[in-house]
Design a protein around this nucleic acid. Structure first.
Lengths: 166, 166
DNA sequence: TATTGTTATACTCTATAACTATA
DNA sequence: TATAGTTATAGAGTATAACAATA
């Protein structure tokens, strides 16, 4: 991960300025022999993700992809517990804790003990969290449109559909 | 990343045993509202990658995806320098250094100063590196077939082709 | 001056293990 | 006993910054 690049850019860009171009990534340079990697679905996915991640970091400096996803899931699912958030995101309890800790430190979410089960916390957004999420959601949608700019609407639908088969 | 799970499993599995099932990951649980995430290409890719990464870790305990990719690229491209490896993999020089350091520690690759440019190192596989790579390549191909098991041959081609557009 | 390798440093993400409180 | 949260710890991956050697 690389919050560093994001942090560096955070203060360096002025309102209304263009999102900085991420350093170019030669997707599949022709002078390089990728050997067995060429045929692998998993590796093709990985390379696409590198390009996507760079654009995300450059254009949404306030969040990382996991932080943004956690914030959306907390917002959309009232009463979500930390353990369940981890399951949904595909990480364990301790990792979910760490994400929520950071969101709490940023004053974007608060924990409160579940009345139904005193072991459990449910997590919800603060007013600030809601405002930041709304702003970031706009930026993320723009980012997503940008990374998929070389795909037709139909190709995007096909891709989303194929990706759900993993 | 999570070499820990891989390390834990490394000694625990016996020759010929089935690759351990990675902990299940509910790909898009129906009781959860994903909000804006549902429509994002980038997030669909991320979820697919979580599933793929888990299977990789469970079935190729000796390598992580970046280490395997680095090993293949070094093997296939004689005279590759560290900086160029980083560019090809989409990471900076220091990160490429760290990957190569680990491969050197594992006695899988060696550095030697380039005769053409004394600033540069070129990197090549050791005999052990070649043997390990051959074995891992088999396992990785099996892994890739397994993660793509719900896709037809045609769908795999479509997916690889779409992923090259990012 | 520009580039390569290198080292120091830092941060995110994630995991395992063990502990406490509650069920 | 089992589960939720928590804390401590660790390791992989990656970045920035600065330096020496070489181009």
């Amino acid at each position: 991960m690389t919050a560093n690049a994001a942090q560096k850019r955070r203060g360096a860009r002025e309102a209304g300025a263009e999102a900085p171009a991420a350093e170019p990534f030669e997707q599949w340079p022709e002078d390089v022999d990728f050997g067995v990697l060429s045929g692998l679905i998993g590796y093709a996915l990985r390379r696409a993700q590198i390009a996507i991640y760079r654009d995300f970091s450059a254009s949404i400096p306030d969040f990382t992809p996991p932080l943004f996803a956690a914030l959306v899931l907390i917002d959309q699912n009232p009463g979500l517990t930390q353990t369940r958030l981890g399951q949904v995101m595909g990480v364990n309890r301790a990792a979910a804790m760490a994400l929520i800790d950071r969101l709490v430190d940023l004053n974007l979410v608060v924990r409160h003990v579940s009345v139904a089960d005193k072991r459990a916390n449910s997590v919800r957004l603060t007013d600030l969290g809601r405002r930041r999420l709304a702003a970031a959601s706009l930026a993320v949608r723009e980012h997503d449109a940008r990374i998929a700019r070389n795909l037709t609407t139909r190709e995007r639908d096909t891709l989303r559909s194929l990706l759900r088969k993993f």
